[in-house]
């Protein structure tokens, strides 16, 4: 009897180890690609940030310590870059989350006499399908001082033309509007998923207890939507910090340095400026750290609310 269980256990462990080896085999292709094109480049960009790398030869590397990082604050338009990046990320996040929440609440209601909600949802989601590069080109044309549709419409309504792309700080707003237009669809869909996950029994109970509409919104909808709000705030702010082509095509970083973002500076030092790649790498590391921090906050906040999600 004992021998039999021994044999069984042996067979079982043999089976388990065979399965483990097959599992490892299954992970190999994924691992190769990910290590090669994500992990190694991350390590390299950190390495480059502490070195002076020659453009011609990747193996020609001299250690310079923190010199690249020390050079960053002395670069032209550094303060403007910090302000522009924070204004852009904050502006986009606040406007997207606020607007998307209102639109999602409006889209969530069902009932007679309303326009088909599925259709409306698709209409609002539509801009999210477009490439950020294309959205940038499109909005640059729309903002054109003399020929753009926005100024034409303002004139048709009897207003004065606005110089959207050449007025310091107004241009930041113009870029934010375009980014909001692109990112809002996704936020709405996430909010709608959140709204639909609220059990209707909660609303029914509140109604039976005689709660007013405002009370229901304040005491049920918003608390139940807290996780969706967190997700949206963090994903949208990460997307805003990462965004490169849309703001670049709209404003080209002008006027002056006022709309030049961190990502655009990375591209400039990494690919356009001669022999300043180290600074580009240092800025890249800064961006990676910022985004990692935001993600850690997300993880931390969502862990706390695990009972809901």
């Amino acid at each position: 009897m004992e021998q039999l269980t021994e044999v069984k256990r042996k067979r079982r462990s043999k089976f388990e180890s065979k399965r483990t080896w097959t599992g490892i085999l299954f992970l190999i292709p994924c691992t190769i690609l990910v290590v090669m094109f994500i992990v190694v480049p991350v390590i390299n960009v950190v390495r480059y940030s502490f070195n002076e790398v020659s453009l011609a030869d990747a193996s020609d590397v001299t250690f310079v310590g923190l010199d690249n990082y020390k050079a960053v604050p002395q670069t032209e338009g550094f303060t403007e870059m910090i302000i522009a990046t924070i204004v852009f990320a904050l502006g986009v996040t606040i406007v997207v989350v606020g607007l998307a929440f209102i639109v999602a609440l409006a889209l969530d209601k069902r009932g007679r006499g309303r326009i088909n909600r599925g259709f409306m949802r698709s209409l609002w989601f539509f801009p999210a399908l477009l490439s950020a590069a294309i959205v940038g080109i499109l909005w640059r044309i729309m903002y054109h001082y003399t020929n753009g549709v926005i100024n034409k419409s303002i004139q048709a309504l009897g207003g004065e033309r606005v110089n959207w792309l050449e007025t310091p700080w107004l241009t930041n707003g113009a870029v934010i509007i375009a980014a909001v237009w692109l990112l809002m669809g996704m936020a709405i869909v996430i909010f709608l998923a959140g709204l639909q996950s609220i059990p209707t029994s909660l609303y029914e109970a509140a109604r039976i207890d005689g709660a007013s509409k405002r009370q229901i919104r304040r005491n049920i909808t918003i608390p139940m939507m807290a996780p969706a709000i967190t997700i949206n705030v963090l994903t949208i702010s990460i997307a805003a910090f990462k965004m490169y082509e849309l703001p670049w095509f709209i404003s080209l970083g002008l006027p002056g340095y006022t709309t030049r973002l961190l990502t655009q500076r990375i591209y400039f030092y990494g690919f356009e400026a001669t022999n300043l790649m180290g600074i580009g790498a240092a800025l890249s590391v800064v961006l990676i750290i910022v985004i990692t921090l935001i993600s850690l906050i997300q993880l931390f906040v969502l862990r706390k609310r695990e009972d809901i999600f």
């Binding site: 090669m36 094109f37 390299n44 990747a58 990460i238 990375i266 890249s284 985004i291």
Partner: peptide, 29 residues
Amino acid sequence: RRGFKVYYGALIALMVVPFIGVLISLIRL
């Protein structure tokens, strides 16, 4: 298995990395 769990966590963590942040070294690669 523990190893598989760790692997999974590491892979998920990589979703955080911004593409433009590694573009410089990726092109060299």
